[in-house]
Design a protein around this nucleic acid. Structure first.
Lengths: 214, 214
DNA sequence: ATGTTAGTCAAACGATCGTTTGAATTCGGG
DNA sequence: CCCGAATTCAAACGATCGTTTGACTAACAT
């Protein structure tokens, strides 16, 4: 009992969720990883779903808080709308801090989150909406301030594209010479992050003109 | 037996794969949808994995061929590098044709493909690499010609971001007022597509300068 | 020492999974 | 009509799933 069984279960589950997906990880895979009993999940979390919720909530709360703190701190410096690049940095920095964490369980979380965005199960979508959507709206408001020439639906769409680009970069782990944010050296991660920021900043700032495509 | 059981199985599977994910769709869900027997999958495809491969291959081949035909046709018009917007149109048009198809099974396929990009199972990644990667390289070469100021790794990364933005837009189906390429009216789809194209075109064309982030 | 509580354990529950069997059925050509 | 191949069928296979039970141990207060 090097540590609380409850926390060791969450750590093991977090890594397995990232490696195999939320819905492809079984109770016995989790408990087998730390030599615990199958009933331990029921005892500590009520059910496997309870464990999933606990694993996600453990990161959601600090993530949202960190983002909102950074945002209000930046806003207190000036009444002007924030630069898009600064807003992107506020948004992504807490996630990148997890990606570069020394704890492997923390490093696993961003991959889980990226997978959840594309997960078909409606239950996960509901959880995302309840926990993350409120602070997303705050950032959308701020982004709309920084991009005054864009309509609100345009801002929402472009932020969605931004999240999609980030999520994809986050989970492409095995592709050689490709943009993989995870399982890469610190230098590669730095290079990918800079490239991603430049990409989405340009995309967000693209002219809103009514010019037709092609 | 309105149609071949073999084709009806593939259609039913395709829609279920899109709705519930490749690994969350059971044999009995598929055969139950068309009133077939559980053994029919083994008879027609050998196994569930065989059915999955058949469903994917049925769309892969025409998709890749259509893209390559459009590309060579565009290249034959001029020796100059193609405009980025034109290249993007060539890349996405065959997919958007599926999204707007009258057959619900065809409409389901792009969602499956987007999900596969984030699917953890290595087996699907290998299938993607074997079937899609070759023609991706052709487009990367052409994109590098159109963006001569970018290094090859930069081109690869930015194309990855592009695909991520598209895939995310493709699977966000239930989000109100958000950029959902599927399950939306023709007008919404048109709006989202134009916005996506503008976003990724600007991202791809972003200056390559060595300016550090913030 | 005793009672209470928290935690772990092996074992089994019913359900569902993909697959397999062997017989029944359908169907086209001799 | 008949035969052989193609196809479908109900039923069961073993494996794995999440969950549950009830006994067992450990820790601590009374």
């Amino acid at each position: 009992m090097s540590a609380d069984t409850r926390e060791r279960l969450m750590d093991a589950a977090e890594e397995l969720f990232a490696a195999h997906g939320l819905s492809n990880t079984s109770v016995r895979m989790i408990v087998g990883r730390i030599g615990a009993n199958v009933a331990s999940i029921r005892f500590h979390f009520g059910s496997l779903e309870g464990l999933k919720r606990a694993v996600l909530m453990r990161r959601f709360e600090p993530l949202v808080r960190s983002r909102l703190e950074r945002l209000s701190e930046a806003r207190s410096r000036s009444p002007e709308p924030l630069a898009v690049a600064e807003l992107l940095d506020i948004w992504f920095a807490p996630m990148l801090a997890l990606v570069t964490s020394k704890h492997s369980a923390e490093r696993a979380f961003p991959v889980i989150l990226a997978r959840m965005l594309l997960e078909p199960a409606a239950e996960y979508q509901a959880l995302l909406d309840n926990e993350l959507a409120p602070h997303v709206d705050v950032f959308l408001d701020e982004l709309a301030r920084s991009l005054p020439e864009l309509s609100r639906p345009q801002v929402v769409m472009r932020f969605d594209f931004t999240i999609g680009a980030f999520g994809h970069a986050l989970t492409r782990s095995g592709v050689p010479a490709s943009g993989a944010l995870s399982r890469s050296t610190r230098a590669e991660l730095e290079r990918t992050t800079v490239a991603l920021m430049r990409f989405v900043e340009a995309g967000l700032k693209a002219p809103a003109g009514a010019r037709a495509l092609r």
